[in-house]
Each structure stands twice: as structure tokens, then as C-alpha cells.
Design a protein around this nucleic acid. Sequence first.
DNA 1: TAATGGTAGGGGAGGAAAGTGTACCCATAT
DNA 2: TATTGATATGGGTACACATTCCTCCCCTAC
Length: 823
Amino acid sequence: MDKVTCQIFDVDYVMANGKPIVRVFGKQKDGKTICLMFNGFLPYFYLYSVKEENYERAKKALQSAFPYLKFEIVERYLPIGYGSKKKVLKIIGADPSKIPDIRAQAEAFGTAYEADVLFKYRFMADYHLRGMTWIEAEVKPFKTETVKCQSYEAVSFKNIDVQENAPLKYLSLDIECISDEDRVPDPKNDPIIIISLAFYPKYRDKDQIILIAKKAGLKNERVMECENEEDMLQKFIDIVNTYDPDIIVGYNINNFDAPYIIERMDVLGLPKDFGRSSKSVLMRKLQQTSMTTIVGRVIADPYEILKSDPVVRFKRYDLNTIAKALLNDTKIDIGGAREIKQLWESDIKKLIEYAGKDAVLALRLVTEKHLLDKYFELAKISGLLLQDTFGVQTQHHEFNILSEFVKDGFIMPCRPKVPHTGDAELKGAIVFEPEVGLHNEGCTLVLDFTSLYPSLIITFNICPTTLLLDNSVQDYYEAPNKAKFVKQEVREGIIPRILKRLIDARAKIKKAMKSAKDEETLRLLDAQQNALKIMANSMYGYMGYGRSRLFVMPIANAITAYGRENIQKTKKLVEDKYPVKVIYGDTDSVFVKTKITDLDAAEQLGEEIADFVSDNLPGVLNLKFEKIFRSFLILSKKRYAGWSFEKVDGKWKDKIVMKGIETVRRDWCDLVGKTMKEVLSTILKEADIQKAAKQFRNVAQGLAEGKVPLEDLTVVKGITKPLSAYDGVQPHVELAKKILERNPAFGNIVGARIGYVIIKGNALISKRAEDPEYVKKYNLEIDADYYIQNQLLPPIERIFEVCGISAAELLEGSKQKSLLDMF
DNA sequence: TAATGGTAGGGGAGGAAAGTGTACCCATAT
DNA sequence: TATTGATATGGGTACACATTCCTCCCCTAC
């Protein structure tokens, strides 16, 4: 029998003769796409009832409604609570889409398990297949018209260990529509006039094609002139099918371009045939967002990817800001809908340049900034298909845990219809009351626990499957909240096991990174370790999430309770043993103040403390010496700055670290951020508070003289919900209302980040928030007093106050007295 | 398909609530 | 229709103004 190897890219199913055929779309090493058809797997779920006689009743009732059903009594472990296997009824169906109906009737006789697992994932879990991993399949030749790539009939699958990714093809797109000036383009009426495409790798020696919906006679070889919109969309479909991309990219494609194109195709009656299967494109509109699925291809939206990254944050996420920041390139600037219409009629060349650039920038973000690396690895680790990795963390854990459950004979609860709430609240972590002020007489050591919550889960075997609900076992851990978990010797929990694997794998990769030579390998490894970290660290969040399948309040509370106990113990251990003081700590960290001024000596003590504490705590709990603050300024809980020293390759490297304060917050204007950075650096590095005060006065002076550019005064805040849902009055919300009034074509405002400046006047601040562009256009006057009193002064004052300088002293000096008089 | 891991915590803005100061009237004591 | 010395004191009320507290919201730390 023939064998083929491929990387799993997409999975779905089609119905044939009343039974499903699973289709596995795979990528081969040379980039070729194949489809493996698998016959004979049927959808099923479990029903559990304490009363076994219910199974017979259920069978009878279900059989009459669904005569084709098959039943088996099997033994499985229930997921929550330590116990032995129970008899459960396995109900085997035929058409996956009918399972919800069957479940609904079955639930009259017991509790359904795994009845809401998508069929493709049901199949993948049972056959141990994971997204983006490599398999070897035994195959027979197979002919079908239903897919557009080479297909085989698969007989069996085997996992193989390959780290690399198959080469993928990327198509980036951006559309332009034409609409009346004052509203959002509506796919029901407003045509698409341009579809701009960019390719990686090249398509027929071109890296770009711009389709336009009229004959303009441009003689530009990048431009494909079409008869009309319908012709253009048809050509677009042809190009997609010929180029056959794996990934379709676009900036905000998920919420604009993709649904728009599909709705236009519906309006014009064109077949939406650009997936890897015949009837293959599906678009769902949800309340705020829409979602497009294209069989065999993956839609990647750099806008959504960047926006959801908690590590790299931007003040705004418009393509121009992002391109400038990440690619050092800019978008071509034209105005709004009005200009598009004008250019379409008068200056189509400029419009083409504009549209062309957007598609290229979106593509470059993905290919040059490697935005997808993380998701490739997340897919491999969680087992999800690539297209589902962009979504929420819950899904990653659900499939990952399901896979493990299947192996060990556990069954997974259905997703709760309403969020679980326990009797008690989920109590979080401890934040130590900080010793506010500037600490620069001796070094402050920072130590923290590596992956605290995962470590606790592993150490105390915390898992729904080990939760002890009776007195059947004597060997257990009792958490501070009284929850009990059987020890590892009795049964190792599934979740601790998963976490252990994630942590071990990460340690291995981090080691490999140290000896990695080329950049490509290093990047791959870094993406791997990052994905592992994300998975491990978010497990606790999943367990404390009310809609999680495995939510049990005492378990979530046990984790945090252990965490609180642990950090208290740590503080005590350190202070009892060493002549030091813990001056701050948050969740998993301690900030240890010493009298040592020498870096190397401080490091030595740090390592010693770390070892001592780790040795005196149970299990895999590991306190790590992180860095030294030569000077450390703490303002309040979660707000501090320090001059940090870390050893890199045997050499001390210093930098200013800032947490929580205005410099790292996106809802303060840049002027504040810049000034604070300058002042903090002076205080921390030079301990010259008078100089710092002078620096502040200079800035205030500049502000009073109107020398500060508008960009530095712009405050940016996000709109998090529909404007009508706001109860209070807030600057950015009030401005958003104004913007929508002025430009009804603005589009969806939820999720937008609004930049504003405060102009002079007597009204509420909120009513004086104005769009910087508008201020420029109408030459409005900035309220310098607001910027001094409400932006600059409060944060600066807070810093100086803990250093022992009052506001009055800060503003001292003849110039400054008059400065305040000026307003 | 339906929803979009967790809690702790700071701080701005607005507005309600509670406090302060003042003017005025009135009653009472001297 | 009629009260009706002057002054000090205190209570009550209305109102303006300043402060405090609370809520909503955003964003961050971990």
C-alpha cells in the first residue's frame, strides 16, 4: 500500500449515502496540497445516569425517534471527582449535524457527555491527530470531484516527528468599494471597484495584481482591467483557484473584506467557489463580528493578531500606525469614502497605488514579521487546526484536554449552557503592601516563581480527576481552602500531566535556543517556547472560567489559595533567614531589599535565597533569582520603576524597568510618557531630584509656550462597547459620538481606539475632547491648563512626593510661579 | 456554533452625597 | 389689622460652594 506524509492543515467532512466522510487536507514537504478521505468514522456521544435502568429506557425512546442509532454500554471515568469507572451509554449516530437533536432527547434520561464536540475534532481526538503536525498515512488511490487537489483514500494514520513547517502560499487582499459619502458601504447596494492582491511567493512572476472593475486603458501590467464588477469577481475567483493559496491575508479582512466579497457574490449570483472543495465558502454574521470559513484555506487577519497580543502593545492599530512601527513604511494617504469616489472618476492611478499598497503592507506584516509563527506552534501543542488557533484560549485547552481524556478513558462534560458560579467567589492572588518610596541605598533583589500556578497544580496534583469528594483515600493533599486532591501515587491528574509535559518541553527548547546557530531555527524555537508558555500559563484561567467544561469552584480556589500561602511562606522564609526585608511582592514575586551595593555580591545572595527557598518548598515549586534593582522606586501596588541589572552572557546589562505607571499606559498622552521617562531616569540613575524637578519645569514651560506638538498631547482610549451602552460621560466616548455625527461612514466604532486632545473652554472635560485633525483644521486652542493640571502634574507629583518633594517645591522658582499665573 | 481564560489594583472623570459657610429670619434672653 | 427699645445668642432654612465618596471605565500586573 502507498504511503504519503503531510502536515495537517484542515479537516472537515462531507456526507455520502447518509454517512460522513472525513477529509484531511494536508501540506506536503514540497508545498503540494493533498486530501485524505477517511470512511467509516461515526459521530457519537455518551450518556450517564446513576440509575442504570435509564439506559434501557433511553435506548427505546431514542431508537423510535432515530432508528439508525447504535448503542453500547462502555466503562469510562467521570471527569469530576476521584472514583472508579462507571457504566455509560455510548450513543452512535450517523449524521453529525443531527447529534444536537439526539442529545436533546437523550438528556431526559441522564447527563450527556461530549455531545457538543465538533465532528472534525471528535475524529482528530480519536485518531490522535493534531493540527499542523505531520502524519504518515497508508493510502489507496481515490477519485473525487469534490476537492480541487490530489486526493487519496486513507486507511490508517501514524504521527511522525517533524518540526519544520511545509512551505505555504500567502495571498493578501484588500478591496475598495464605492458608496455615498455619508454612510458605511453596504454590500447590498455598493459595488466593489478594486480588488488588490499581493502574493508570497510570486504568482506568475508577479508579486501583485490589482483588479479594477472598469476598462480604464492604463496599460499597467500590474493592473487587470475588467468589464465590470461581476467580471472582476469572477477573475478574482479564477486567480485564487489558480494560485491556490493556503493563507488568505488582509488587514481587518475578517470584519470587512471577506464578508463584503461574499455578500457581493451573493447579490450578483456568483458561485462562491474559491476554497479547496466545491461548495466551500461559509460566512456567518454574528452580532459585532463575522466569520468566514474557506475549506482548505486559512484566513489570517494581522489586525486581529496584533490587537490581541498582550505583550507588544500599540496605541492605535490603524494600518498606517502599524506599518510605520513595524515595517518602517507608510500607507498612501487619501481621505475617506468621498475621495475614493472622486479618484475613481478622475485619478484612478492614485487610487490604484493606494489600494495596492494596503494589500502589500498586510502581506509584509505576516511574512516579514512572522506573525503566524506563534499560531503554527499553538496548533501543534493544543492540537487545534490552524484556523481555530486565532480564537480564544478556551478552545486550545478543550481540545488538548479532550485528547488526553480519550487516551485515559475519561469522558468530557458538555460546555455549560450558562456560566457556572460557585457558592463562593474565586479569590485571587496576594499583592503585598509596598514600602512606598525610593530605595537606592542598597540593591533590591527581584525573585519570582517560574510558572507559579502550573507548578502548584503539578505539585499538589490539582485536577478535576483527582478531586477527592469522599473519604475513600487517605493519601491526599489538603489545600488551604479545604479542597482535597489524591496524591500522585493514587492517580496522576490529567491536567498536572499536561502541564508537566508543557513545562518540560519548554525547558528543553530554551536549552536548545542557547546553542541555536541560525536565525531561522532560533525564531522557530522561540515561537515554540512562547506557545508552550502561553498554554501553560492560561490553564489556570481556563479552570477558573465559568464556561469551562471542567469548572469547579473549589479547584480554582485551591490553586489561588495555595498561591497565597506559598508567597507568604516565601516572604517568611527569606526574612527569617537573611538580614533583608521584603518590600513588595505580587502573586509570585518578592522584592528583597538588601544593604549590598556590589552587583556581584547581590547576585550571589539572590541565587542563594532562590536556592534556599526552592529547597524548602514542596514539589516543583522553584523560586528564581530574576534581576537586581540598583535603585527602585515604588509608588503603589502594581506601579513601580527601577534601574535593573541583569547578567547576559556574563556581563551586566542595565535598563530602566517601568511597570503600571503612566509611561507604559496607553491612555496618557506621549508628553507625559516622555517627561516621566526622563525624570525617572534622572532619579533612578543619578539620584538627582533637583535636576529631575528642573527637567519637569522645562517641559511645563514648553507646554505653556505652546511648543508641544499636538501628537504629544493626544490621549488615546479604546471604545469597548456600543456608545449607547455607556452609563457615564467620558472624553473618548463623547468624541466618538461627535466623530460618528460628522462622518456617518466611519464604520464600526466598537473596538476602535479614539485619540483626543482637550481644547479650551468651560464645559466638562468630556465635552471638550476633540479630534486632533479637527483641531488642526479649525485651528482650535489647546487647554494648556488641563495638560498641566490633569496630565503632567498628577503623575509627576506622585513620583516627587514619594521622594520627599512637595508640589509647591516642584513648581518653585520665579518662572514657575508666573507659569501658573499665566493660565 | 457561540462566545471570546482569571483576580487585584490604580487612577481619571463625573456625579451624587454629605459637609461648610453664609445670609437671613425668627425667637428668646438680657 | 397691628407690632415696634437695643443687643446678643441660637435655631432653622435656603443656597452656594467645596470636599468626599462612589461608580463607571480603562488599562495594567501577575
